[in-house]
Computed example of a mutant assay.
Amino acid sequence: MELADIRREYSRGGLRRKDLLANPVEQFNLWLEQAVNAKLTDPTAMTVATVDETGQPFQRIVLLKNVEANGFVFYTNLASRKAEQIAHNHKVSLHFPWHPLERQVHITGVAEKLSTVENIKYFTSRPKESQLAAIASHQSSRISARGVLEGKFLELKQQFAKGEIPVPKFWGGYRVIPQTIEFWQGGEHRLHDRFLFSRESGGWHIDRLAP
């Protein structure tokens, strides 16, 4: 198999400046709605990139849980590797790969912790099994076998069979306040369309980028 020979043409249509909304968050919501309506698998899945104290980048897939006028929200274990890296360097990058629509969105910004009230509101809205899993898994820590994780989950399931599950102190969310948002639309002959929104005082500046 020759990887260099694997290619396809992008032919779903281009993107023109006149097609863009003035607010990139509203533009993102439009594209996200179209991705959901197209029944893409995990349309809210995004890559979250962080950097550790040595400058080593890390990436992982996380689910977007809310889009607000001032940011993009996700939740995690606050003792995880990503949380430790965010504590060291608040600058993060998000990437949405909507391949069937020949689209990508890339976001750079600064992550800030959500309030306790916001964390409680979302945690209590989750299915009970998801709540238990959040407590059972000390994310990014080393475990000897999967059975250890499953055993802890079953133990907690019995413990809270008839009661409410408390929100763990080590669990919470982040809001990524965007500084740039780039929209990428595939084009024929690799002449892709890219538009970069950059935050400026009083609004957003738009640039077209070469593919």
Rank of each mutant, 00 (worst) to 15 (best):
V48N: 08
V48E: 00
A49P: 08
A49E: 05
A49C: 14
T50Q: 03
T50Y: 06
V51R: 01
V51F: 01
D52G: 10
E53M: 13
T54I: 06
P57F: 10
Q59K: 12
R60W: 03
I61G: 11
I61F: 13
V62M: 14
V62F: 10
V62E: 05
V62P: 00
L63D: 06
L64T: 08
K65N: 12
N66A: 15
V67D: 06
E68D: 14
N70H: 12
N70S: 11
V73S: 09
V73E: 02
F74T: 04
F74Q: 04
Y75G: 03
Y75D: 04
Y75Q: 07
T76V: 08
T76C: 00
T76R: 02
N77K: 05
N77R: 09
N77E: 01
L78V: 00
L78T: 02
A79H: 04
S80D: 08
S80N: 10
R81M: 14
R81T: 11
K82F: 06
A83W: 08
I86C: 09
I86W: 09
A87K: 15
A87D: 15
H88I: 02
H88C: 09
H88T: 08
N89M: 00
N89K: 07
N89F: 05
H90V: 13
K91Y: 10
K91N: 13
K91D: 04
K91V: 04
V92A: 13
V92T: 13
S93M: 12
L94E: 03
H95C: 12
H95Y: 03
F96Q: 03
F96V: 01
P97M: 10
W98Y: 11
W98A: 11
H99R: 14
H99G: 12
H99Y: 15
P100V: 00
L101P: 03
R103V: 09
R103A: 09
Q104R: 13
V105K: 03
I107E: 03
T108M: 08
T108H: 04
G109E: 02
V110L: 13
L114V: 10
L114P: 05
L114A: 08
L114C: 10
S115F: 12
S115R: 12
S115A: 14
T116I: 07
T116K: 13
V117N: 07
V117R: 03
E118F: 08
I120V: 15
I120G: 08
K121P: 00
K121I: 02
K121V: 11
K121C: 04
Y122S: 11
F123T: 07
F123I: 00
T124I: 12
P127A: 07
P127Y: 02
P127H: 06
K128A: 10
L132Q: 07
A133W: 05
A133E: 12
I135P: 00
S137G: 04
H138I: 08
H138Q: 15
H138S: 11
H138E: 12
Q139N: 09
S140Y: 01
S140W: 07
S141T: 15
R142Y: 14
R142M: 15
I143N: 04
S144H: 14
S144D: 15
A145C: 14
R146F: 01
G147M: 09
G147Q: 14
V148S: 01
E150G: 06
F153H: 10
L154W: 04
E155S: 10
L156I: 02
L156D: 01
F160L: 08
F160N: 02
A161M: 07
A161V: 01
A161N: 06
A161D: 00
G163L: 04
E164N: 14
E164C: 05
I165W: 05
